[in-house]
Design a protein around this nucleic acid. Structure first.
Length: 865
DNA sequence: GCGGACTGCTTACCT
DNA sequence: ACAGGTAAGCAGTCCGCG
């Protein structure tokens, strides 16, 4: 039943998602007064009841949320290329019950580089434009800008910036932020005097976005537990058959409450709960009263924080409330297709936020690799959930309270650690993407960039192209990918020369792809532009060319983000003469920009991106290949020894300072892209494998890249032994020291081997932990080992879902695997594990000239020597 | 009917 | 639901073998 979401994802024809709107039966109100001091714009949505836009404003002084409804009579619309007089003849459109009027508008068509006339069809309500059967966009052969959600359309047209400050003056929403607000603004802007006018204009607009501080938002974290009669079943939130047994609430105002429903007999004798002293424990004999109390409390906060509240906690509360007969006017939650929203304030589901790949990779550098509260909290807070030896439904009320409270606490702390980093990042992402908080924390980077570009198009009166127009006009790809099934050729990886190298410098192009996009003026409209005079401006190794007449919109925005990050926010975040809170803020801005920059090339190669432009993505990697190969050739010319390189880096063996400087200068002058000295290794070891090495840096720290011993799914016993070998290697200062390291490593391997042979490792130490990327039934082509193990678990009555980590050991027998909990040490296939030892250690030993078979073939080290 | 060579699938990594 | 490139291990298939 839980696999349904996957089914929807793989559906070929997707059901048009309806405009998300607040249902008309929701009656909660928090209308703003006629005049209101500056408040942060938290959210923009469409109210079905008021039939207009609702803006939620957060007042930092009292922690309250105020509603402001649109008073400008803005209406939903779409555009068509059918002339006015012809549209008038189309009775279906004109007589559509939602039709309001038509306007004639001028738009700038970037794809064709000319002004065009369009007909704007204005409707009474969003669903009349699209999202419902027979809506206006379905009556037109081609409809532009018709799939933009109305609340987004409103944001772009009104040039609203969620996350910035607005006041209400005589009932009108007025921005309260300006270029003049911060004293540094002039200084930052002066960094852009050399740049193109379009970049300067963007800088002027964006500087306040980066410089305006964010308020500390009044928020509440919530976690619920549900009583279930079948202990190992996870309760189904849509059924909500079982009572809510416990709810923990933690507020930024100091509130700490745990509400317990006494469904059974309460053993009073057992009261020594692990709860902190200041937590208020409350017992309810009525579940209905308990839930009503939760709902009442939620309303006092601007943001409600959960971990997976969309799919569990709030969904369960909603269905349970209905079941218990709580009236709609008392339920402040409403459910959409895949989210749970609040009538007042915003529900922030941290599960969704941390699931975001860009956040995981670029903001937190893959510190957490599993998307559970336990894994994320451990990686970012250094704290774990309460470890269970029984199911929640088997706990005493006090144990349950402690467990539930801890989860809420971890959830809450995820928003407060590092001076509320997460909240600050989210608000910066809102400003950059122009999205309301509930969207920004649920959608991925491609939607953020899409939204940012929509906003710029509307501000500049550029027509937003139909997605299919871009490849049609700008051409398809002309290169062949190395990997089957990919669309175009990507990066170059140099073949490493195996061995150990002392004194290695790594030179790399700092943010190569964004640099290429700005330096080469790459943008969806400038690639293969319509001007014949630009055709000679070729992209190397392709048939594409780039416009010389017009500065690209994408390259302009990337130039701004890249330059402001490199020239201001990154250095300022490290400037120790500044107070800590300022450095902290500069660091947050710097990180937020990094997230956008790192995705700026990839999105153009993603089919689902609204500005998908394969020729532009392909050009970016083609130029990158040109940059690295031409630099490599020059390096060889000046007699440098390149031992490895990947995409944007060159590893050079014992270069002289002069050689390095020569190379940096060369790339600056000949490519217009800056090469930097990234790091120096005291020594580095390469096997014959690409993307695989171990290097000791000069400061005593080390890098492990790609080696099996570091992979998440490698059995713990191997990881441990591997880290011991790394430890031995980390003491090596010079060639002489290797002798000792070799001796130690042999010893480690022999010990590991003997332990394995004698079956002295535990099953947990021997287990592979592999993630199930989809529901078990969706593995139709092959049945990998972790799926076999998962199927065995299912037979045993264990619920298995997509995203679960399956722990299994390799055993003798026809299946070859068994889940850890269903296996025993006697059946473990030792030979298989020896093979794994061999490949794991082989990656390091190859370079050191140690032979695995020799090492394990000898009983003791004394015999060996 | 069997085993090695091969391709494809899957996961986890690198940039 | 940002991209392509690489490695590892296994699943499944093909092919030759009188």
């Amino acid at each position: 039943m839980f696999s349904e979401s996957y089914e929807e994802e793989t559906e070929e024809v997707r059901v048009e998602e309806e405009e998300k709107e607040i249902p008309s039966e929701i009656v909660f109100e928090a209308e703003a007064p006629k005049n209101l001091k500056p408040c942060m714009l938290l959210s923009v949505s469409y109210s079905g009841k008021k039939k207009t836009i609702l803006c939620q404003l957060y007042n930092d002084e009292n922690g309250k949320v105020y509603f402001w409804y649109d008073n400008t009579s803005h209406k939903p619309y779409c555009l068509t290329d059918i002339p006015n007089d012809e549209i008038i003849k189309n009775s279906h459109v004109i007589n559509h019950k939602g039709f309001e009027r038509i306007d004639l508008v001028d738009k700038y068509d970037l794809l064709r580089d000319k002004i065009i006339k369009m007909t704007k069809i204005v409707a009474k309500d969003p669903l009349s434009i699209g999202g419902r059967k027979g809506s206006i966009r379905e009556l037109l052969p081609k409809a532009w800008e018709a799939k933009i959600k109305y609340h987004e359309c409103y944001i772009y047209d009104m040039q609203l910036i969620p996350g910035m400050f607005y006041k209400i003056e005589e009932g009108n929403l007025v921005p309260y932020f300006s270029y003049q607000q911060s004293e540094s603004n002039e200084e930052i802007l002066s960094l852009f005097t050399e740049e193109d006018d379009q970049v300067k204009e963007l800088a002027f607009k964006y500087i306040p976005i980066f410089q305006t501080p964010v308020p500390e938002i009044k928020r509440l974290a919530l976690d619920i537990e549900v009583y279930t009669s079948t202990p190992n079943r996870i309760p189904d939130p849509r059924e909500a058959n079982d009572p809510v047994s416990c709810v923990a609430l933690i507020g930024s105002d100091g509130l700490k409450r745990v509400l317990i429903f006494e469904y059974g007999e309460l053993k009073k004798e057992e009261q020594n709960s692990n709860l902190p002293k200041d937590v208020k424990l409350e017992f309810y004999t009525s579940e209905k009263k308990l839930i009503e109390e939760i709902f009442k409390t939620i309303l006092n906060y601007a943001v409600l924080i959960t971990f997976n509240g969309d799919n569990f906690d709030l969904k369960y509360l909603w269905h349970r409330a209905k079941k218990l007969g709580i009236s709609d006017r008392q339920i402040p939650i409403y459910l959409t297709k895949d989210a749970a929203m609040l009538a007042i304030g915003v529900h922030l589901d941290l599960y969704k936020f941390f699931h975001n790949k860009s956040i995981q990779v670029y903001a937190f550098m893959q510190k957490y690799k599993e998307n559970t509260l336990d894994a994320v909290a451990e990686a970012l807070l250094g704290e774990k959930k309460i470890q269970l030896n029984k199911y929640p439904s088997e706990m005493t009320p006090y144990e349950l309270a402690s467990y539930c409270y801890k989860d809420a606490e971890l959830t809450y702390n995820l928003t407060t650690f590092d001076s509320s980093l997460i909240m600050k990042l989210i608000i910066l992402f809102m400003r950059l993407s122009r999205m309301p908080m509930e969207d920004v924390c649920r959608l991925g980077i491609s939607r953020w960039i899409q939204s940012l570009l929509y906003a710029i198009h509307r501000e500049k009166n550029y027509l937003i192209p139909l997605p299919e127009e871009i490849p049609a006009i700008k051409g398809k790809t002309v290169t062949q990918a190395i990997i089957k099934g990919k669309k175009y050729k990507g990066a170059i990886v140099l073949e490493p020369t195996p061995g150990v190298y002392f004194s290695v410098a790594v030179l790399d192009f700092a943010s190569l792809y964004p640099s290429i996009i700005t330096r080469w003026n790459l943008s969806y409209e400038t690639i293969n532009c319509p001007h014949s005079e630009c055709v000679e401006n070729r992209v190397p190794n392709t048939t594409h060319w780039v416009c010389k007449k017009r500065k690209g919109i994408i390259s302009s925005i990337i130039a701004l983000f890249r330059d402001i990050r490199v020239k201001w926010y990154k250095p300022m975040s490290k400037n120790m003469s500044l107070p800590k809170f300022k450095r902290n803020w500069y660091n947050v801005v710097q990180q937020a920009l990094k997230v956008f920059l790192n995705a700026s090339y990839g999105v153009f190669g993603a089919e689902n991106f609204a500005f998908y432009c394969p020729s532009m993505a392909e050009s970016t990697t083609a130029i990158a290949r040109y940059a690295i190969t031409s630099t490599l050739n020059y390096a060889k010319e000046v007699s440098m020894t390149i031992i490895y390189g990947d995409t944007d880096s060159l590893f050079i063996h014992q270069p002289t300072q002069e050689q390095i400087e020569l190379l940096l200068k060369w790339s600056h002058q000949n490519l217009g892209i800056d090469l930097d000295l990234d790091k120096r290794y005291r020594y580095i070891t390469f096997s014959k494998l690409k993307k695989n090495y171990f290097g000791m840096l000069e400061d005593g720290s080390y890098d492990i890249k790609g080696l099996i011993g570091k992979k998440r799914n490698t059995p713990e016993f191997l990881k441990k032994a591997f880290m011991e070998t790394i430890s031995a290697l980390s003491h090596v200062q010079n060639i002489k020291d290797f002798e000792e390291a070799r001796y130690k490593i042999k010893k480690i391997i022999q010990e590991c081997y003997n332990n394995l042979k004698d079956r002295r490792y535990s099953l947990v130490d021997l287990s592979f932990r592999v993630m199930l990327s989809k529901a078990v039934n969706y593995y139709v082509k092959t049945t990998p080992q972790h799926v076999k193990a998962a199927k065995l678990l299912q037979k045993f009555g264990v619920e298995i879902r997509s995203g679960d980590i399956i722990s299994y050991v390799k055993v003798s027998g026809p299946l070859g695997v068994k889940p850890v909990r269903l296996s025993s040490i006697i059946e473990v296939d030792v030979e298989k594990y020896v093979e794994h030892m061999k490949t794991t250690f082989g990656q390091i030993m190859d370079a050191l000239g140690i032979n695995f078979d020799e090492v394990i073939g000898i009983k003791t080290l004394d015999d060996f020597n």
